[in-house]
Design a protein around this nucleic acid. Structure first.
Lengths: 117, 117
DNA sequence: GTTCCAGTTCGACACTCATCGATATACAGA
DNA sequence: TCTGTATATCGATGAGTGTCGAACTGGAAC
């Protein structure tokens, strides 16, 4: 465990001695990190993650009235979650008559996915 | 309020008329969604996302003392963020003497990445 | 016009979060 | 032992979140 530490005899942190290899700075800058974190944060709720899952698997655009019965939450709460996803630009929406249709914009998800893999 | 329910039982939405195609259920079940959402939530902060970025790029284990100067936050706050990442099982830690070393566990990130792509 | 209806927004609530300074813990060196 | 250092935890605070019912908005149909 700490054998290698005893090989380092003298001062608290001897000159040229480090507790670890020097660390490079993050490859993602603050702006990228902020953008991707915003997307990740929007996915950081089970209902929103499942919402995105449904919308992604569904080729076309999905009506809110079809989403409501899938989840055990009130309709205003679902609307709130859709608003969060829209604020993160993960989904877009369109109104046709009485109904509102949602669809996934793949780009933000792709940026996050690209960083992860 | 609910008077109209008896009046018009049938045709508020005319037979055969739909607002959209029928929606399949989410492919990810609630347990998967909860697990992945926990990971996504932990990544939903720019500092934590950059922390993971540094740790992933760094082959070995990284000492906390190298992480602190990279970010403009206090040491307790950094420790708090590392604790969040550890709670989400994105990173693990090990103590050697005075120092604590953190490393990435790739599995949770891979699960999220696999779902995203 | 009036009356529904799908969806959004509002107001409130309890809860969680990011942040800090202060304090505690754990260890190394003397 | 005592001193100093690296990291974690505590306590507080202000900001944000998920949730609901109520109210509002804009179309559609009568």
């Amino acid at each position: 465990m700490s054998v290698e530490l005893e090989l380092v005899p003298k001062q608290k942190r001897p000159a040229g001695e480090r507790c670890c290899e020097p660390v490079v700075y993050p490859d993602v800058d603050r702006a990228q990190a902020t953008r991707m974190a915003e997307v990740a944060k929007a996915l950081g709720d089970p209902i929103r993650l499942q919402l995105v899952d449904v919308l992604r698997k569904h080729a076309g655009k999905v009506c809110v009235c079809e989403l409501v019965p899938l989840f055990d939450i009130s309709q205003p709460t679902l609307s709130h979650h859709l608003g969060k996803l829209r604020a993160a630009r993960i989904v877009g929406s369109e109104r046709r008559g009485l109904w509102a249709y949602y669809y996934v914009d793949p780009e933000p998800l792709e940026e996050l996915s690209g960083w992860l893999s």
